[in-house]
Design a protein around this nucleic acid. Structure first.
Length: 752
DNA sequence: AGCACGCCGACT
DNA sequence: GTCGGCGTGCTC
């Protein structure tokens, strides 16, 4: 690293004498020379100290890139005159941080990166200011809006600004930065409504976007291949109003579909896609084009949630229930929340869409913040496939199901559909945690006090609550009164092979991370085949418009049928969202099937009486979400309450909990034993104790859940942050080094 | 995280 | 009397 721009860097004096050799070095002459050198160095330092500061606004307030939880604050530095022009607000700088004062001058410390937050005429810091060492680039990458957003996200998630800035500002790439960004293109004309005409308020939503207004909607997308086009038109309408748009997709495949739709609508040059696949240089190039205002529309995966779109007019998220919208790095913000913060800050429109409606989205409607955007029942019926169920009673009477593992109805449906086109078979992924349910009716077994899930944890044979840890001695099913439980889990490893045997003359292909050797397929041709896919990896059927094997009748395209075989595995997950998640995956697969009018049929192997199954049969995701929301309200579950988890070694958790000043109405659940996180999973790698460490050093991990009423989430985050800072400050150095810090998580997704 | 300051035991 | 142990606190 060049030090030419660093005046304080230790440098040899200009006429450094050669080191004396042998005994002569210790002579009086040598000592005299050393003193002379020392004098020279001091004089040089003085000369450098005289380096003038900038005349105007000589102070730079800097957000230092050090994720110390008790140091979440700005630091002021003086701006040397030579850096005056470059040290603009938002610029990346390098400063010396953490040194000490030695006869009036600063030594030691390490160079850290940071961002200039603002330039000031004077600092309120009483001590002498250290100078900025280097301006890495005058590019103002941290705009005031991005800083405001990062601050808000840090506060909401009990994280530090430094952590969020790591997510919000991509690493610099010199070559990309040196290039000019393309000329901004003129705004396109407002688009025709297209598929939005199928929705009750679709056209008015699009008109409002084009008119520069800020409508907010929870969009229940119709089944079929139309939704990428609808998103593209929403973007185009926003661009037409002279504003920018940001659309987040859960994965690269869905992003490519929207990208293609937008290209078909507007041509290229008006938008960019931001995904991890691009690599750092190209990603930074595109990010800069957005930051500089050269491109006003962004399609991206979750890391693009911070994309610095200018004059933000619309934020949109597709399939907000998909787990990949949740950032894995601290402080683990959720893309939906970040987008909603941005919409509120910028006065932008918001579109939360998917085939399913999440409870969080339903709450946006319930609170009046957003309006529902859905099609009338008649339109929906014309677009949706027929959904049929196979429940336990059907299975019990079905000898074929026991041997072939494929119920008769499913087999017949597939056989008939294979005459007309491809058939999708959705099978569960492996690795789901078994959960306890009623042995008779499979209702999930929950704690009588806090409604957490019960688990058979220890050898004492008792059931324990996974949330509050209370043993549940006399559980009985609230539905049917049975007192027996059983693990509710299904494996379907050999589904593909078994199907192959059931349909010997049909090609079988697989799509999925773990399932097949082909990996995840984006598309499959529109011809008879069995496509076995895990949830989220379902390929789209290629459009048969241009030749191909399509029928002459002008088919809408899609699978002729889908078999959803993973019902129990999905519903049996130890998760609050199991029902919503099952419905989400079923709807995602079913939305790829042709309408019932063209013979499209879905068979789901699940009890027809269950709420998500009924919602699938009636294709009523909004109704399902409303019921879920009402139930969460009753039980005090998120998102009606806000929750946080505190995970760490027993002492560390106990210490933090003893220091925290909880907001009013807070409820502490636990602690309960928790698995020690994998080293790579969290922010910091867990320090391994040396082999000879005393046995007491290896403390078990525990987790506490804290639940507060809606509206106290911010207070809870603040309290957690303060408690962690106090805990870190109190812990001795040795203790701090030996114990990995507690992990705080707002809105934990995996609370059972 | 580094790094220095500060206040108590064995040494030239 | 000092050298140095690491407990405690600060870093613009």
């Amino acid at each position: 690293m060049s030090t030419s721009r660093d005046p304080d860097a230790p440098q040899p004096p200009a006429a450094a004498p050669e080191a004396g050799a042998g005994a002569e070095a210790a002579s009086a002459a040598g000592a005299e020379q050393l003193a002379l050198i020392r004098e020279e160095v001091r004089a040089a330092r003085k000369r450098r100290k005289a380096a003038p500061s900038a005349a105007r606004l000589p102070v730079a307030r800097v957000a230092v890139d050090k994720a110390l939880s008790h140091l979440d604050q700005y630091f002021d530095y003086s701006v040397p005159a030579r850096l005056d022009a470059e040290a603009v607000p938002g610029a990346r700088v390098r400063v010396r941080f953490g040194g000490h004062v030695e006869d009036g001058r600063r030594t030691g410390g390490s160079l850290v990166d940071g961002f200039v937050v603002e330039r000031l005429a004077a600092s309120d810091y009483p001590g002498p200011l250290a100078p900025l060492r280097q301006v890495l680039s005058p590019e103002p990458v941290l705009s005031p809006e991005l800083l405001r957003l990062s601050r808000a996200v840090a506060d909401r998630y009990a994280g530090t600004l430094a952590d969020v800035l790591q997510l919000a500002v991509p690493p610099r790439h010199g070559r990309a930065e040196a290039e000019p960004s393309p000329e901004p293109r003129p705004a396109p004309p407002a688009p025709e409504p297209g598929g939005w005409a199928r929705y009750a308020h679709g056209e008015s939503f699009l008109r409002a976007l084009a008119a520069g207004e800020a409508p907010r909607a929870v969009w229940t997308a119709l089944p079929g291949p139309g939704w990428p086009g609808e998103l593209a038109r929403a973007v185009a309408a926003t661009l037409a109003s002279g504003r920018g748009a940001l659309v987040l997709l859960p994965d690269g495949r869905s992003l490519e579909r929207v990208d293609a739709a937008l290209r078909a609508l507007l041509g290229g040059g008006l938008h960019v896609a931001l995904t991890a696949e691009l690599g750092p240089e190209e990603r930074y190039r595109r990010w800069l084009a957005v930051s500089r205002g050269a491109v006003r529309a962004v399609l991206g995966t979750r890391a693009a949630m911070f994309a610095p779109v200018r004059d933000l007019g619309l934020v949109a998220i597709w399939d907000d229930g998909d787990a990949s919208h949740s950032e894995q790095r601290a402080p683990q913000p959720h893309a939906r929340d970040v987008l909603l913060l941005r919409a509120a800050d910028a006065g932008a429109a918001a579109l939360v869409g998917g085939h399913v409606v999440t409870v969080e989205a339903a709450q946006l409607v319930h609170s009046g913040w957003a309006r529902p955007l859905a099609a009338d029942r008649a339109v929906l019926r014309a677009a949706a496939p027929l959904v049929r169920t196979v429940g336990d009673r059907d299975l019990a009477q079905d000898a074929a199901a026991r041997t072939a593992r494929l119920p008769t109805l499913a087999w017949r449906t597939a056989r008939d559909a294979l005459e007309r086109g491809p058939v999708l078979v959705q099978v569960p992924r492996r690795g789901y945690v078994p959960r306890l349910g009623c042995a008779r009716c499979r209702e999930s077994a929950r704690c009588g006090r806090c409604h957490g899930p019960l688990e058979a944890r220890s050898a004492d044979g008792l059931l324990h609550c996974a949330w509050c840890g209370r043993p549940e001695a006399g559980w009985s099913c609230p539905e049917c009164g049975s007192t027996r439980t059983r693990a509710v889990v299904v494996g379907a490893k050999r589904t593909a092979e078994e199907l192959g045997r059931a349909f010997p003359h049909v090609p079988v292909r697989t799509s999925g991370r773990t399932t097949g050797r082909e990996g995840v397929l984006a598309t499959v041709p529109d011809r008879p085949a069995l496509i076995v896919a895990t949830p989220g990896a379902e390929p789209v059927v290629e459009s048969s418009e241009l030749g191909g094997a399509g029928s002459a009748g002008g088919s809408a395209g899609g699978y002729a049928a889908a078999l959803l075989l993973d019902g129990w595995a999905l519903l049996g997950r130890p998760d609050l969202r199991a029902g919503e998640e099952a419905l989400r995956r079923w709807l995602a697969a079913s939305a790829l099937v042709r309408p019932a009018s063209e013979g499209g049929t879905v068979v789901v192997i699940a009890e027809p009486g269950l709420r998500p199954v009924q919602a699938l049969v009636r294709w009523d995701p909004a109704g399902h979400a409303a019921l879920e929301l009402a139930e969460r309200q009753e039980l005090g579950f998120p998102p009606v309450a806000r929750m946080a988890s505190v995970t760490g070694r027993r002492d560390a958790v106990a210490d933090l909990m003893s220091l925290i000043r909880l907001p009013e109405g807070a409820e502490v659940l636990g602690p309960v034993p928790a698995p020690a996180p994998a080293p790579g999973a969290g922010a910091q790698p867990a320090a391994h104790a040396p082999a000879g460490a005393p046995a007491g050093a290896e403390q078990p991990w525990e987790r506490v859940l804290i639940r507060v009423p809606l509206g106290r989430g911010a207070a809870l985050a603040t309290a957690l942050k303060a408690a962690r800072a106090a805990s870190l400050a109190r812990a001795g150095r040795g203790a701090r080094a030996a114990t990995p810090p507690v992990r705080l998580r707002m809105d934990p997704p995996d609370i059972g």
